[in-house]
Design a protein around this nucleic acid. Structure first.
Lengths: 228, 228
DNA sequence: ACCTGTATGATTGTCAGACAATCCAATCTT
DNA sequence: AAGATTGGATTGTCTGACAATCATACAGGT
């Protein structure tokens, strides 16, 4: 301990994350991996003994996923994997634009750390592409970059919302292989975005951002459409 | 039914809203009424037989309230009524500014209905003050007006977030009588806001909005401070 | 006095089993 | 073929159980 009688250790996160949280995480992974098709009902008993946990635990995990928008509860009929129709996708993208634009506007007042994080997020994203990393990993880094924009607002609540929206995108993406390749080709767009951001031209950045998200949206919509 | 073969009945509110939802609502009311002081632990068994429901039901209700930020779960120690310190209040206000400003920016492209709703929300708010309605009712209408701004974005997700933020404000407000009177005096500020909005001057509106929220924030902070 | 270890009681986290209410699909009526 | 009926599956909720965890008070050692 130091002179103040204070310790400064990281709170050791072996934290036996609750069973509910682990169950939820398992479900999330399955969803993001595309193992469950949208619309598939998630039966409580089936999941319970598949995961080796009690039904009440499954139920609480479902409550979490429902709050995240990954699954939808239909009264007396259970929960189903959320199916994102075009309206939903548009809504998510619109919300993302609002949050990310807010981050962009906050660039000049943002902390150095948060700004560094944006650059770092871009770098790992670019690096992964360069290394020819698997699309899944690139996609992950890509979303992380967008979240780092929202983090410029320094608002934990807004970041939480952004993460939830990103999760919805991940889910929607899980079944559209065609779109996945896009993240590889969007490198230029992102580089331009970062460049404008650092140049301090907020309005131009937002214009680029709007175009970027809009492109992503129509690409996703088209893919979903084709699938139906 | 009308010519379209469509009925237009209110979905008959007897809708035996699930026990969980009713329990959550009861808790919410108690919280907003200030019956539970921030920091108070909410014991599962006590609530269960106080509400006349099972413990699992209480647990699920807690999960809902936790997601709304009204209560906080501490692992192995249960949930407590969320205590909003100054950082939390600032974060909420900041997030509100982002969302409501987005609504303001969307004014010109917003639907006529949504625009009418903003005016309607203002009118009932003003009317309540005029009628000398109880502060609680005025405060409710006040928050509703702010939410109607976010609704201009026409994004259900953003509106949902705004409602959640409003709920947090309600909770924080529940214990600061001093601040409550403010809603009565802010009529002018709101009228100005609406005027600017309708004039189409987005930037000026946002400036006013920022000042408005900032004033509310410091008033709330001061009250919380004084209380401690 | 101060620190440490231990016993005790309360409470959460999780499970298992039960049962009514509800929904779906298939069958039976008219 | 439209409508009523029945049966099985599944959810919503309750009860009861028990281990793990935490808080507190207490005892012992230095």
């Amino acid at each position: 301990m130091n002179a103040d009688g204070q310790y400064s250790l990281d709170p050791l996160d072996l934290a036996h994350a609750s069973t509910v949280e682990r169950a939820a995480e398992a479900l999330r992974q399955a969803l993001f991996a595309g193992e469950l098709t949208p619309g598939t009902p998630l039966r409580e008993v089936a999941l319970a003994d598949s995961l080796g946990v009690g039904r009440s635990t499954v139920r609480e995990a479902m409550a979490l996923l429902t709050a995240e928008g990954l699954v939808t509860r239909i009264p007396n009929r259970g929960v189903v994997v959320t199916a994102h129709d075009s309206d939903q996708v548009k809504d998510v993208m619109h919300a993302r634009l609002v949050l990310e634009a807010a981050g962009v506007r906050a660039w000049s007042e943002a902390s150095t750390v948060d700004r560094q994080r944006v650059r770092a997020a871009f770098d790992t994203y670019a690096q992964l592409i360069d290394d020819g990393a698997p699309v899944r990993a690139v996609s992950e880094a890509h979303l992380h970059f967008h979240i780092s924009l929202v983090a410029l607002t320094a608002s934990s609540r807004l970041v939480a919302v952004a993460q939830s929206l990103a999760a919805e995108i991940r889910l929607a993406l899980a079944h559209v292989d065609r779109v996945r390749g896009d993240v590889l080709e969007q490198l230029g767009s992102h580089r331009r975005l970062l460049g404008l951001l650092e140049s301090g031209d907020g309005d131009a950045t937002i214009t680029e951002l709007r175009a970027h998200l809009s492109a992503g949206e129509s690409s996703l919509l088209q893919a979903l459409d084709q699938q139906a």
